[in-house]
Deep mutational scan, measured.
Amino acid sequence: NEDWLCNKCGVQNFKRREKCFKCGVPKS
């Protein structure tokens, strides 16, 4: 499991996502 947490809103995103699904901030 290599899901990632958004640095802005803290929601968990799937590994394949390049941007946060909730707030749209790019993966860092």
Score class of each variant (00 low, 15 high):
Val11Ile: 04
Gly24Ile: 03
Leu5Thr: 13
Lys15Glu: 12
Gly24Leu: 07
Lys27Gln: 11
Lys27Thr: 14
Cys23His: 02
Cys9Glu: 07
Glu2Gly: 07
Glu2Ile: 08
Glu2Met: 15
Cys9Leu: 02
Asn13Met: 04
Lys15Thr: 11
Lys19Pro: 06
Cys6Ser: 00
Lys8Asn: 05
Phe14Pro: 05
Val11Trp: 08
Lys8His: 14
Glu2Asn: 14
Gln12Cys: 04
Phe21Gly: 09
Val11Lys: 12
Lys22His: 05
Lys27Glu: 10
Asp3Ala: 03
Val11Glu: 13
Gly10Arg: 06
Lys22Asp: 05
Cys23Ile: 00
Lys15Gly: 11
Leu5His: 15
Trp4Glu: 04
Cys6Gln: 11
Asn1Phe: 09
Gly24Met: 03
Lys8Ala: 14
Trp4Gln: 13
Pro26Leu: 07
Glu2Val: 03
Leu5Met: 07
Cys9Val: 00
Glu18Leu: 05
Asp3Asn: 11
Val11Leu: 08
Gln12Gly: 10
Trp4Lys: 05
Arg16Pro: 15
Cys9Arg: 02
Gln12Arg: 12
Cys6His: 03
Ser28Trp: 06
Asn1Ile: 10
Leu5Ala: 13
Arg17His: 04
Gly10Lys: 12
Pro26Gly: 10
Phe21Thr: 12
Arg17Pro: 08
Cys23Ser: 02
Asn7Ile: 06
Gln12Ile: 13
Lys27Met: 12
Asn13Phe: 01
Glu18Pro: 08
Glu18Asp: 10
Lys19Leu: 08
Phe21Gln: 10
Asn13Cys: 02
Arg17Ile: 14
Gly10Met: 13
Asp3Phe: 09
Glu2Pro: 00
Trp4Val: 05
Gly24Val: 01
Lys22Pro: 01
Phe14Arg: 11
Lys8Phe: 05
Leu5Arg: 07
Phe21Pro: 03
Gly10Val: 05
Lys22Asn: 02
Lys22Tyr: 03
Cys23Pro: 02
Lys22Trp: 00
Asn7His: 14
Gln12Asn: 09
Cys6Arg: 05
Gly24Glu: 08
Cys20Gly: 01
Val25Trp: 08
Arg17Phe: 15
Phe14Ala: 10
Lys22Cys: 01
Arg16Met: 01
Gly10Pro: 03
Gly24Ala: 06
Lys22Gln: 07
Pro26Asp: 08
Lys27Cys: 14
Gly10Cys: 10
Cys23Tyr: 00
Cys9Asn: 05
Cys9Phe: 01
Arg17Lys: 07
Arg16Asp: 15
Phe21Glu: 10
Lys27Val: 09
Gln12Pro: 09
Gly10Thr: 15
Phe14Met: 09
Phe14Cys: 14
Cys6Val: 02
Lys8Val: 04
Arg16Lys: 14
Lys19His: 09
Arg16Leu: 05
Arg17Ser: 12
Arg16Cys: 04
Cys6Lys: 01
Phe14Thr: 13
Pro26Ala: 12
Asn13Pro: 04
Cys9Ala: 02
Asn1Val: 14
Asn7Ala: 14
Lys27Pro: 14
Trp4Cys: 03
Trp4Phe: 10
Cys23Gly: 01
Glu18Val: 03
Val25Gly: 11
Lys15Ile: 15
Lys19Trp: 06
Glu18Ala: 07
Glu18Trp: 00
Gly24His: 05
Gln12Val: 05
Cys6Trp: 04
Cys23Arg: 00
Phe21Trp: 13
Gln12Lys: 15
Lys22Arg: 06
Lys8Thr: 12
Asn1Tyr: 01
Glu18Lys: 04
Gly10Leu: 14
Asn7Tyr: 10
Val11Phe: 11
Cys6Glu: 02
Cys23Val: 00
Trp4Arg: 02
Pro26Thr: 11
Lys22Thr: 03
Asn1Lys: 14
Val25Ser: 11
Phe21His: 06
Lys19Ala: 11
Glu2Ala: 01
Gly24Gln: 05
Lys8Ser: 09
Gly24Trp: 01
Leu5Pro: 13
Lys22Ala: 03
Arg17Trp: 09
Glu2His: 09
Lys8Met: 09
Phe21Leu: 06
Pro26Gln: 08
Cys9Gln: 03
Lys15Arg: 08
Asn1Asp: 09
Asp3Ser: 10
Val25Cys: 10
Trp4Gly: 04
Glu18Ile: 11
Cys20Arg: 00
Cys9Ile: 01
Leu5Lys: 13
Phe21Asp: 08
Asp3Gly: 06
Lys15Ser: 12
Asn7Val: 08
Gln12Phe: 05
Trp4Ala: 04
Asp3Lys: 04
Asn1Ala: 06
Phe14Leu: 06
Cys20Met: 02
Pro26Ser: 07
Trp4Thr: 04
Phe14Glu: 13
Lys15Pro: 10
Lys8Trp: 09
Asn13Gln: 04
Ser28Cys: 15
Phe21Ile: 04
Cys9Tyr: 00
Gly10Glu: 05
Asn7Cys: 06
Asp3Tyr: 06
Val25Arg: 06
Cys6Asn: 00
Arg17Tyr: 14
Cys23Leu: 00
Cys6Asp: 07
Asn7Leu: 14
Cys20Leu: 01
Lys8Leu: 08
Gln12Trp: 09
Cys9Pro: 06
Cys6Ile: 00
Asn13Thr: 02
Asp3Thr: 12
Arg17Leu: 14
Lys19Gln: 08
Lys19Ile: 12
Asn1Leu: 09
Glu2Gln: 12
Pro26Glu: 12
Lys15Met: 04
Cys23Phe: 03
Lys15Ala: 12
Asn13Ala: 01
Cys23Thr: 01
Val25Lys: 13
Cys6Met: 00
Arg17Val: 12
Lys8Cys: 04
Gly24Thr: 05
Asn13Val: 03
Phe21Cys: 11
Lys8Glu: 09
Asn13Arg: 00
